[in-house]
Design a protein around this nucleic acid. Structure first.
Length: 492
RNA sequence: GCGGGCGUAGCUCAGUGGUAGAGCGUCACGUUGCCAACGUGAAUGUCGUGAGUUCAAGUCUCAUCGCCCGCUCCA
């Protein structure tokens, strides 16, 4: 029986065994930033590899991409992030709750202006906001607000070493826009035909108002995103397809079924671009055992490609607004937008359309955390606690550890040869120090699926023992068959 | 951002204003022949950081940073 892991146990194990450290720890840490240690980087890379394998390698209809983190600022105007990511917030002095200023309602008003546009932050700040009559939606206090303060959810930086000459650019808040911006490049260079997808793994940055729970919500994080382009009308079918495919991916990599479920978004929580969205949620051991999002699968419709068709025609407005994204006006969609540069021509049916997009968007860091938490186990063995990580072999940082039973009688030399032979196939670890039982247990805690041990019998009949992490059972295998045996067991 | 809790060795934690500690882990040597064995020894501390009070601060005060829990937020 798997023990329910406490987050503290996981954090402690991560530090102790070199999975995850806090960033800049020797300086007291930097909030919300974490580093992956020697075992952690292997785990994380394996998560990415597994995603890439199932999403790109094993499919005939998906190609990969790796975009720069910095993009033309107008990308974020067209995508909507430049506007939607900046708000004026005021805080109620009485109950400390925060509200968007444009959502606040006057004492005598009948309803608030729910859909006020996100205006120029500087202009808004310069405008006097009469807060004296505003009602706090949380506690009902009137006129108790702080001065409005601006919130920018995108990271900004300067491009160009000459400070006077540098341009304000943003760190991408999602990798998806790099895919949309390259849609035409991929079409023109790869002979793909709709339906097809473009996949990408990479870092994104969001100035979250609140970070949370270890590596679960961080301001710098890694995403694995697929934009799957399909003909309008077939979108629902592909939405279902990817829902199922992505859910099974987690199960196939060992996540326990009872810890994973779907949560459909209510229509009013849908993002501005989405027609439908479902989250794959994992039951994390923080909070009150809350279900938390690992991945969102959204039907983004043709919103993004249409927006970029507007964006690329709006460059002059951007220059004329002194490159101020908020003041820049996007040109209205042209009447024949269906024939625009980001449209697709279906040769077979002689049809032109703007593709719909199904987007499975997974958080790599939070997936890695889920795999860690889910694999964590403690069990009683002869009155002692055995800590282990029951990783799926594909995710295990080290696949095989090789030991001499004792450090003498030529055993280390043989073990060393076996190790050298195996390490070209997959990540291996050699250890000859101390008692073999301790070495086994250490590997259990790192999640290593198999330990190969050279003993006295090895010299006589050329066999070694292969010890299984989960059952602790041992099998004798001839060294000539060892590679095949392990490959099969590891499914590599 | 608010409220609560916490921060001492790699980890878990003890420490009454008066010499910096334990268990586990790590390392070395010996022993050992299959599951965190045993023996001997060793290394590891800006007590989160900075000020203040005091003859004296890990301990009291203030500030600050970080983590956890609960609100709040989450395109």
């Amino acid at each position: 029986m798997a023990k329910l892991a406490k987050l503290d146990d996981i954090v402690s194990l991560c530090k102790r065994r070199g999975f995850i450290f806090q960033s800049s720890e020797i300086y007291g840490g930097l909030a919300s930033c974490y580093d992956y240690g020697p075992l952690g980087v292997e785990l994380k890379n394996n998560v990415k590899k597994a995603w890439w394998k199932s999403t790109v390698q094993m499919r005939d209809d998906v190609v990969g991409l790796d975009c720069s983190i910095l993009m033309h600022p107008m990308v974020w105007k067209a995508s909507g992030h430049a506007d939607k990511f900046a708000d004026l917030i005021a805080e109620c002095k009485k109950c400390n709750s925060r509200s968007r200023v444009d959502h606040l309602q006057d004492k005598d008003a009948e309803h608030s202006d729910e859909h006020t546009t996100h205006a120029d932050i500087d202009a808004e700040l310069a405008t006097a906001h009469d807060m004296s009559n505003k009602v706090c939606p949380a506690c009902g206090a009137v006129g108790q607000f702080t001065e409005p303060m601006p919130f920018k959810l995108m990271f900004e930086t300067q491009m160009g070493a000459n400070v006077d000459d540098s341009m304000l650019v943003q760190l991408r808040p999602e990798t998806a826009q790099g895919i949309f911006a390259n849609f035409k490049n991929v079409l023109d260079s790869t002979r793909v035909k709709i339906p097809f997808g473009i996949a990408q793994i990479g870092k994104s940055f969001r100035n979250e108002v609140t970070t949370k729970a270890f590596i679960f919500r961080t301001r710098e994080f890694e995403q694995a995103e697929l934009e799957f382009f399909c003909e309008p009308g077939t979108d629902e079918q592909w939405y279902q397809h990817w829902k199922e495919a992505r859910f099974n991916w987690y199960l196939d990599l060992g996540i326990k079924k009872e810890n994973l479920h779907f949560r459909d978004h209510d229509p009013d929580e849908l993002a501005h671009y989405a027609k439908a969205c479902v989250d794959v949620e994992y039951k994390f051991p923080f909070g009150q055992g809350d279900w938390q999002e690992l991945e969102g699968i959204a039907n983004r419709t043709d919103y993004d490609l249409r927006q970029h068709q507007r964006g690329i025609r709006s460059l002059n407005n951007w220059f004329e607004s002194d490159k101020d994204l908020i003041r820049t006006k996007l040109i209205e969609e042209s009447e024949d937008y269906l024939k625009g540069p980001l449209s697709y021509f279906d040769d077979q049916n002689k049809k032109r359309f703007i593709p719909y997009v199904i987007e499975p968007s997974a958080g790599i860091d939070r997936s890695a955390l889920a795999f860690l938490v889910d694999a964590y186990d403690e069990e009683e063995v002869r009155g002692e606690t055995r800590n282990l990580l029951r990783f799926h072999p594909a995710l295990a940082p080290v696949k095989v550890a090789v030991f001499p039973l004792v450090k003498k009688d030529g055993m280390p030399e043989i073990a060393r040869r076996i190790y050298d032979d195996l390490k070209g196939l997959f990540n291996c670890f050699y250890d000859e120090k101390g008692a073999v039982g301790r070495r086994y247990r250490r590997q259990d805690e790192a999640g290593t699926p198999f330990c190969v041990t050279v003993d006295g019998q090895t010299k006589e009949d050329n066999t070694v023992t292969v010890r299984d992490r989960d059952s602790m059972d041992q099998t004798r295998v001839n060294t000539t068959q060892l590679r095949t045996f392990l490959r099969e067991k590891l499914d590599l």
